[in-house]
Each structure stands twice: as C-alpha cells, then as structure tokens.
C-alpha cells in the first residue's frame, strides 16, 4: 500500500489472518506442537535414561541369581518374583554395615563441607567485582584436571613417605611425649582417607549453591538488623543464617547423596574391611556376579536417599502454602 492513499472504505483488511496463508497443519505446529515438543524432550530423556533403567533394576532385584547369561532368572510360577534378596539384605550384617559406614562417612563429609564451604561461599558472595570472579574461578578450577588424577595425588600425599605425611607426623610429635612418638600417620586405606578425599572433591558442590543463595540476599537486611542494635555475629545468626537455609539444604543434598553412593574414592583410598555401600554393590555385581543382589542393594539405597528428600520437599511445600 506504500505510496497509495489508504482507502477508508471496502472490506476489512485480510491481515487479521496469519500472514502467508499458512495451512492448518503449519498453524497447529506453530501454536501447539512446538511447545509440546520442547516440553517432551526432557521427559523422554528421563524416561529413557532414568525411569526405564530403574524399572529394570527393580525387576532384577526381584529375580533369582543363576549361572547363565544373563545371570538372573524369574520364577516360572506365580508370583514369578522372589523377595529372598531383600530378606538377605536385612539378615546379612555385611550389607547393613555397608549402609551404616556409607551414611556415617557421608554425614561427616557433608558436615565438614558445610563448615568449610559456608565461610568460603559467604566470603565470595561479599567480595567485590573482579575478586568475586577470581575466587569463583579458583573454586571451579580443580574440575579442569581429571578427578582420578586428583585422587591419585591424594594417595601420594597420604602415603607414609610423602612430604605431607612427614610434615604432619613431625607436627603431631611436637605434642607427643618422646616415648610414644610415631613414625608416620597411618592415613591410607581408612575411613579418614575416604572422608578427607570426599570433602576435597565435593567441596565445590557445597560452595556453589551456597554462593548462589548468599549472593542474592539483600545486604540492607543486614544493615537493618545492625541499625536495630545487633552486632555482626547476631546479624549473622538472625538474618544471614536463616535466610540461607535453602542454600544449605541444596549444598548438603548435592554433597550427601553422591557421597553416600561413592565408589571410586573408597575403592582407591578406603578400608576394604569396612567398605562403603557403593563398593559392596560393585563387588556383588562384578566379583560375585550376583546381579539381583546388587540391584536389591541399589534399590534400597535409593529408597534410603529419596524418602528424606521427598519428605523435605513436602515440608517446604506445606510451609510455603501455609504463608500464602
């Protein structure tokens, strides 16, 4: 219509319809299908790589172990499944002990990560401009080297002839009477070694969610508390700490859950006589070739971890409903 005086009369302009005169299919695609496809992608991913394998594992946990390929078999008569693996899980002390060791190591490691990570996250969140970026980079930097390499480095450091161990030994000997001086600190192949390396490896997973939470906190709230008479420590207790609980929970879950099922670290530096549950699963699966038992332990572990998380989520939902 450019250059021509617009006509006031005549039929209503056709621009009301979608330009280009799209077919019904294209229309449907644009209005509905793309949105559905985008939503569907993560669901398909989850079904393929989480739900389906998990169902297979559950099914396997209800089967019997046989010497065949594959090494498990379902009953041929009703009810086709057996609970003997679960019975064994609760009757054989090896498994219970594995869970307990895992939970204890993971709990201690999570607590240490929180104690170490919180001040670091707070420091980074309060740092100014460039410093903040540099500090964040330093937290993430270890990820640039192979995880295994870093665990092997710790093995070297903890060995009785390393500079680390010798330094630690002479430091401890300062406080010990001459008669009971030690030659080295027995660190390797112990739960202490597992916790140490877990704390080292998982610390960034504690720091990052805490930082994300603390960084968002409004500093004027701290000023308001100070203005109302609170000293810096009281301000922390009354304002910063309660408002960072979501960050604390997120960080603790991110450390605790993988730490409980950790396989590599306890296999490399842990005590084989007191194994964590990840190692037990691995042994059942590859040494004993008892796939149903390995599956059973894994299912039980998942229940152990998922139930508290779901409870926590319910609690959070109720709390937020309560205030609305």
């Amino acid at each position: 219509m450019a250059g021509v005086a617009p006509q006031r009369s005549g039929p209503a302009p056709q621009e009301l319809e979608l330009p280009g005169g799209k077919s019904g299919f294209r229309n449907w695609l644009d209005r509905q299908a793309w949105r559905d496809i985008i939503i569907a992608v993560p669901y398909i991913w989850l079904i393929l790589f989480f739900v389906a394998p998990f169902i297979i594992i559950i099914a396997m946990s209800l089967a019997k172990s046989v010497i065949a390929q594959p090494p498990f078999k379902f009953d041929e008569t009703w009810p086709y499944v057996t609970f003997e693996n679960f019975e064994r899980l609760f009757s054989d002390y090896v498994y219970l002990r594995g869970y307990l060791t895992s939970l204890r190591n993971a709990l201690i490691a999570t607590a240490l990560c929180l104690l170490l990570g919180y001040p670091m996250a707070l420091g980074i969140a309060r740092a100014k401009g460039v410093w903040r970026n540099i500090l964040l980079l330093l937290v993430i930097l270890p990820f640039w080297t192979s995880f295994l390499l870093r665990v092997y480095a710790w093995i070297g450091m903890m060995g009785s002839n390393s500079w680390f161990n010798r330094g630690l030994t002479s430091l401890i000997n300062v406080f010990l009477p001459a008669a009971s001086e030690i030659n080295s600190v027995p660190m390797m192949n112990s739960n202490f070694a597992v916790i140490l390396v877990v704390v080292y490896s998982y610390l960034p997973f504690m720091i990052l969610p805490l930082f994300a939470n603390l960084e968002k906190l409004d500093y004027t709230l701290n000023e308001a508390a100070m203005d109302l008479g609170s000293r810096p420590m009281q301000v922390f207790r009354d304002v910063t700490l309660p408002l960072s609980i979501p960050g604390i929970v997120a960080g603790c879950l991110l450390v605790f859950i993988p730490a409980t099922g950790e396989l590599v670290i306890p296999s490399l530096v842990g005590n084989a006589g007191d194994p964590m549950i990840g190692r037990v699963i691995n042994d059942e699966f590859s040494l004993n070739r008892h796939w149903p038992m390995a599956s059973t332990i894994a299912v039980a572990l998942l229940m152990l971890l998922v139930v508290p998380i779901m409870l926590y989520n319910r609690m959070q939902e109720k709390a937020s409903e309560g205030v609305k």
Partner: peptide, 20 residues
C-alpha cells in the same frame, strides 16, 4: 560509634523487612 550503638534508627527505602 557503630550503627548498633547509636540512639538512631532508620526506615530504609526498600523497607528491609526481614522476610522470614
């Protein structure tokens, strides 16, 4: 004198109410 020892109180522009 630090803010927590002053006989002065402030109403903040953003109100700075404690959300929790």
């Amino acid at each position: 004198v630090p803010p927590y020892e002053r006989p002065v109180n402030m109403m903040f522009q953003s109100y700075a109410l404690f959300p929790h």
